Amino acid sequence: MTPPINLAAVRIRLGAQDFYIPASQVGRCLLVTQVAAGIPRFSRWLGIADEPQQGWHLHLFVPASGVETGWYLWGQLENVMLSSDTIFAVPPLLAHGCRLPALRALVGSEAFSPLLSWC
């Protein structure tokens, strides 16, 4: 039996929803000190409801996404290690109808969260 492989990732918590991005794809994340026009909200880019204004107001950059300005979000970020036995392929029926950008896999053991990747 092959031992599980770990993936270094960043968990983004927006309200009650978690999202994961491989850590190698996250360029940087800064606390927002001054809001600039033209920077999209991460939740709107994902096509989901705006997150509650709890946690930190952050400016996230993921160069591989092609979104040069990065995104604003209210939430929490945490570096985590994901074991390959908690990462699952997106079921074909869900993949066919899903409009969530960059969805590549699901993470979890009981409840599932999106793993976003641009590679």
Rank of each mutant, 00 (worst) to 15 (best):
A9G: 08
I39F: 07
S24L: 03
Q76C: 05
C29H: 14
A23D: 05
A49T: 14
L94C: 00
T86G: 04
P3E: 14
E51T: 00
G15H: 10
S43T: 15
Q25N: 08
G47I: 08
L94R: 05
Y72P: 01
C119I: 12
Q76R: 12
P4G: 11
W45G: 02
C29W: 13
W74S: 00
S24N: 09
F61Y: 15
A111G: 02
I39C: 04
G47W: 04
P40G: 05
G75F: 06
V10D: 06
L106P: 11
G66P: 14
N79H: 11
A102T: 09
R99I: 02
L115I: 01
C119K: 12
I21S: 05
C98L: 05
V107W: 02
I39T: 13
R28P: 05
G55P: 04
R104F: 01
L100C: 06
L46Y: 00
S113G: 03
T2Y: 13
T33S: 14
W56S: 15
S24P: 03
T33H: 15
P52F: 10
S43W: 03
Y20Q: 06
C119R: 12
L103Y: 08
L82S: 07
Y72D: 11
I21C: 07
A49C: 11
P101H: 05
L106C: 01
P91Y: 01
L7R: 03
L100Y: 00
Q54A: 06
W45I: 02
P22D: 10
M81D: 11
G97P: 00
C29G: 08
R99F: 05
E110A: 02
L31F: 12
